[in-house]
Design a protein around this nucleic acid. Sequence first.
DNA 1: GCCAAGCATGCAAACGTTTGCGCCTAGGCC
DNA 2: GGCCTAGGCGCAAACGTTTGCATGCTTGGC
Lengths: 344, 344
Amino acid sequence: MAKKRASITDLAKQLNISVSTVSRALSGHSAISEATVKRVTALAKEVGYQPNSLASGLRKGRSNMLGVVVPHIDGNFFSQVVKGIEAAASKAGYQVLICQSNEDVAHERANLETLMNAQVEGILVSLSRTTHEFKHFEKVRKRDIPLVFFDRILDGYDVNAVVLDDRAGGYRATKHLLDQGYRRIAHFTGPQYLNIYKLRRQGYEDALREYGLPLEEELIISGSMDMAAGSAGIKKLLELPQPPDAVFSGSDFSAAGALQVLHERGLRVPEDIGLVGFSNELFSRLMVPMLTSIDQHCELMGRSATRLLLQIMQEQSQHAAPQHIVLQPDLFVRASSLRSAASH
Amino acid sequence: MAKKRASITDLAKQLNISVSTVSRALSGHSAISEATVKRVTALAKEVGYQPNSLASGLRKGRSNMLGVVVPHIDGNFFSQVVKGIEAAASKAGYQVLICQSNEDVAHERANLETLMNAQVEGILVSLSRTTHEFKHFEKVRKRDIPLVFFDRILDGYDVNAVVLDDRAGGYRATKHLLDQGYRRIAHFTGPQYLNIYKLRRQGYEDALREYGLPLEEELIISGSMDMAAGSAGIKKLLELPQPPDAVFSGSDFSAAGALQVLHERGLRVPEDIGLVGFSNELFSRLMVPMLTSIDQHCELMGRSATRLLLQIMQEQSQHAAPQHIVLQPDLFVRASSLRSAASH
DNA sequence: GCCAAGCATGCAAACGTTTGCGCCTAGGCC
DNA sequence: GGCCTAGGCGCAAACGTTTGCATGCTTGGC
């Protein structure tokens, strides 16, 4: 019962002209008289003609689709990145096919397979947490399908990527605390095999060194970076003979967990202890006091990655040297670390 | 320079058999000998053959793709719904094409157009805020493309839809406050032309009526439902000759805004004022005290909508009566409304 | 009046699959 | 030995476009 969608051939028949003429008329080809163009477009509008992009993609060898593989699409970071990707892609006339790897490398492999079947013209990937090898991407490369990674990348592979300068983020956060007069600064960090946590920590250490302060192992707490880890971490720190006067947390969630404990114990933030998070999550503005945090420009990352991908797709010289784009994070200073203002 | 992807024809040539045999062998057709099936699959794996789903879609008249139109993809709610959609779709072997309308009806119209060009087999839509008419969906209907709406729908049109029982949510939230002994309960609500806010308010009123309490206009604050609106709202309420002893906010954000003001003024939650939000945003667990809220089962909504769509796609009887699926919200009770526990 | 040029259009192949139909062969049955 | 069946396979058309080339017609220059 489904009504046949009108095809270019139907239009041609009704107008007694050939399909090629119709095709050219619709695609704005030069060698078609204005009169026919008008006749064709008029009829097209009348019958509600819609081009079949599958057919066109098949013939032209290009699908007008980009593929995206993310660990998961919910959560603040990835949903914003995807928003940026979709925006940039649709502006360039591309559709976006989205897959979730669920942090599972097997899923990730399957996702790539599906995207290649769908004939996407390029692929954007943020690696799953369980991805430690590169083999499944070689297949993509062999097919000469442009590939751009963002945020999560694998060390030691020279690939196109857009990442955040996590070291600079860690450095800036720590330096801000130092500038505010804090001198015994603790740090919450995550698994060191993830580039992001390793780099944030490096930034932290660089800042301390710059100020001639010692790096004390007891001030660095490694954990899962969620709220519970933050609560546990701050408890451990408070039990030290010489507790810290500030914490730079590698995640806003851990910072929130720490804040809850500080509240319970009657410690004041920022007076007694300064607090800085990472990610500038939505809720950082909802905490009391509001949390100073590092913004990752998620949406910009999505847009940049897409633009890089589109650029690579255009260059014939597929095999130019891979590009690395490094985005600079921003520090959003809020009450949780403003000792100078609070002391007035 | 791009290496030609191996096609079914290449396989056929190499094996000296016809393309039809290869096709049937790969698709598990019965009338092919086991021996050839093995030969074909072996070669296919060897050369890394990947089916071209554009071609297959063109021939079969089905693309294996679903379309999704959301106002925007970031934020807690929609990103979780999309997660559910993607999960359900990919389990059924479908790809998901995602578009953002940016809350703009013109964009929405364009999105539908693109999705139809891409030959999606079904479309999932949550309306943009500026959509007050239905015309652009009639075109989709005329093409017999199955259509399912979720969350945001238009009153007065009989369509397939999956929505939350917002009235029940409002009712349950209010009843909980009443059960906790609060008697003068205020309500933050949003634009009444949006079904969700209207219904939440109805639930609120129903609960009050059930307890024989009067509806007082001065206790109902209408606003934009963000943090600022919450702050402004609670200030207005506190200036009343007889301020409320609890607030049911139609959004977690407004509840958060209110909480900040209460903190500033030294009012205790839940002892002096009880607080309940709506949406169960991530940060509701991060607030001090933790915020009682209504969970919308976002991911389930995505999965349900997708399943409904797939079901409609399978039924020949396209034109069966439209189905409405109503999801029941859940109340997550936390400290911000627990007077009984707090009083002990 | 003839030829070159240029414009508007048509023809047909191609993209990679799927699928109805028909062919061939082998085997079983009478 | 002939006939029938069925299994295994090939042929070719079809899906809706795009596009190189050919074609016909008009026009202008000499």
